[in-house]
Design a protein around this nucleic acid. Sequence first.
RNA 1: GGGCGGAUAGCUCAGUUGGGAGAGCGCUGCCCUUACAAGGCAGAGGUCACAGGUUCGAUCCCUGUUCCGCCUACCA
Length: 925
Amino acid sequence: MNAPQLEKTYDPKAVEARWYEVWTKRGYFHASPTHPGQPYSIVIPPPNVTGSLHVGHALNHSLQDILIRWRRMQGRNVLWLPGTDHAGIATQNVVERQLMAEGATRESLGRERFIERVWQWKATSGNTIINQQKQLGESCDWDRLRFTMDEGLSKAVLEVFVRLYEDGLIYRGERLINWCPRCLTALSDIEVEHEDVKGTLYHIRYPLVDDPQTALIVATTRPETMLGDTAVAVHPDDPRYRHLIGKKVRVPLTSRVIPIVGDSILVDLDFGTGAVKITPAHDFNDFEAGERHGLPRITLFDQDAKMDPAGLLEGMVEDSILQSLTMKPVQKARAIVVEALTDRGNLEKVEDHKMALGKCYRCKTVVEPYLSPQWFVKIKPLAEPAIKAVEDGRIRIIPEGWTNNYLGWMRDIKDWCISRQIWWGHQIPAWYCRQCNAGAIFEPTSTEAQGEKETGTRRLVITKNARPIIARNVPAKCDTCGGGNFLRDPDVLDTWFSSALWPFSTLGWPEQTPDLKTYYPTSTLVTGLDILFFWVARMIMMGLKFMGDVPFRDVYIHALVRDAEGQKMSKSKGNVIDPLHVMEQFGTDALRFTLASMASPGRDLKLAEERIEGNRNFANKIWNAARFAHMHLTPTEELHHSADRSFPGLWIRSRLNDAIQTVTMELEAYRFDRATSALYQFFWHEYCDWYLELIKPILQDPLHAAGSATRQTLQDTLEVFLRLLHPFMPFISEEIWQTLPHKGETIVTQSYPVPQAHWHEPTAENTFRLFEQTVGLVRTARALLNYPPGQEISIFVAHEELAASAVLATIEQHLAHIGRGRISRLPISEWPTSNVLRLVADGITVGLSVEHGVDLQKALDRLLKQIAETDKESRRLDGKLNSADFVSKAPPEVIADHRDRLRAFSRDRAMLTNSEQQLRAMLGA
RNA sequence: GGGCGGAUAGCUCAGUUGGGAGAGCGCUGCCCUUACAAGGCAGAGGUCACAGGUUCGAUCCCUGUUCCGCCUACCA
């Protein structure tokens, strides 16, 4: 091997693409079920196929890659399965926007061609995020890349749907659902984001039919929905109103009369006026109240959330009002209704009111409760086992604090609306016999459907009474009438429905593939809190239902990445940190290391570029340490002449052993932050700051007896460290490792370092502590006396204790080298009494000879400060030791420790005083 | 409304069987010492949010308060 000539600074760009190509070409990331190791598998939370890598992905993926690379090096049978999801609504939006630019619509294209168009889009743009993941160095098995709309996964979706239906866990029904009037689809409860807004509470008079002079006053935030009221509720125990139950009121602006009902669930005695209007078609609570009282439902809005004339007619709205309201959106309608009420004197009062407004999580449009037939998953029977699995520890949520969050949500879970009125996704395998459902299906004629103008009302309607046939394929004939003319349900499934199957559908289910047998259940799921309910909970339910086992053992939940000010990153705020830009600027390893270092549990990450820059510097430090090593490693030399028993060698191996132990332990505990800090601390502040400095004289002396052994240790420890580092900084570790003597073709598949009991050297560690303290005193004294670092000086060193003195003797040459001076180990009694500055710590005294003209005031100040601190601490300890309570109740070892420290302080104090007196004398002279 | 988390150095954060308060970055001073100025050395800087309680002893355990964040909820 030739000694490589490394550049002075590390250039990540040159390194990263090169190695990534090698890794993938040689198939290091490819998993095989026949691998002898214990399986360790992770399925990636599939990013949207529309997406590009943001810093949240970067965090999520970095952590997974760390786990995966670590386990791979440990010899486990590792699979990291990548993929994307089809993101129904988001993807459809993207393609529809494209069409709009071309002056087309999905309707004008027709369903089939539209879907072709989406696939086309996916083929050209869908791999953006995949390529970016590769840039991040992710060691996924790309041969197993999956997409939720793939044939295999689609088959799994179909299978699950059919089985759930057969088990009575999927049903179709007309319910009030969350409707996005922009996406024109139903949303599940959790796809609605709530935002606090300042609203208005309108108090409206509803005159009694019997006694028009008297009115019931109801409060509402949505006055426009009053036209669809079908009752007014009061509390049955309310003395103000209970006598009115059973009577009727007139709905203002209409010719309708509605009953007053008593309802203790809906009505809160203390809120508003104590009377509530019931609009079953436009409010979730009212819907339920309507069910309780058998009330009719009047739907006022169409799918665009505009006032529907048919609904207004049904509500018997006065003609003039009806005219002005027709096809008006909610906000306009509200203004018109409020104005009309004011004119009639029906508006009693208006007040400010803060309330939560639901918005579509995809497009932020205000969602409307909308009455329509939809498909639902009956969730309780699925949730129960999913609750148990977490309760009994078969699934562990980390950090543990989120467990209650999960359990609370699961115990209170509501049926899941899974149908979406879009085209891109898994179409529901439900067919309707046209013959048998003649009265329940209204189809637009083909000319209307293809027509340029969108009429809005001429859409396909399949009423709640239609009878579906659920099957894996188109039914051959109708069981009832024998006919063969079917209409397929146009709705597609919620994207999360397919995502919920991800841990087993990606492994080949429903086939019993070797992959499935080997890698299910997966080991760990790494994800953000935001999809705990969307995804994690549903995977657990589906995994238990269809695999009979949990989908993963550990769920590691990481926090959100925010900007340096703690603001959520968003494109509109312009505060996004683009991981690709960062990788370009500072290197991928620096970004990965930074993200891992900030992944403290339960706390959001505030990411500033300076942190990444700092870790870029760390990478550069490693690079330069390697350059240093290469200057001294002579590859042709026969090493292993003798074991390295030198102090630096023993010490650094002991520290490396400790680092291996810590990093491994912290990874096992998912403490990425502490693992990185152990790596950083070890390499920079032990390996570079001390070890490399300590061995320089040995290396620079070609005839040094310890030369060969030292070079061996230098090389070995660096090599071990690189393996320890590799999961965190894959690129630089590979690049440097390749330049060192090594066996094997890549660091990727080398074994992860394991602590070696015989590396542990408490004696060397104790010696080092003494050494470090002594050097610290020398350097402090040097700084106080303004001696330049290079100036050779006379250094006196002594220790109060004999044993420690003896140790100092063994490291004299190291003290001389690092302290840059001539060492004298004369007893203190024989030191010159003047022209020596003495500093003291823990029994050590260091003396530096003072040249004429040096300002000693700084030294005196420091000494006085140290004396004051010593006295303060001594008084504190003394106080405790003099307390009878402390001495009688504190544990003996604590008392002994306090006594020892007090003794040490008073010992140092005597030496400090001595030093102070000499210094004063010198100052006076 | 309910639940959860946070408040420690100028900034970002570590700190679990309660007993001497830490790191990184930033700052100050001195140094281009042949691995590294993307560096080295030295140093300044903290009533551990506030008020009580438990304890011989509390940053740590308990209660309350204030402030910030998140999740969740049908107060019309």
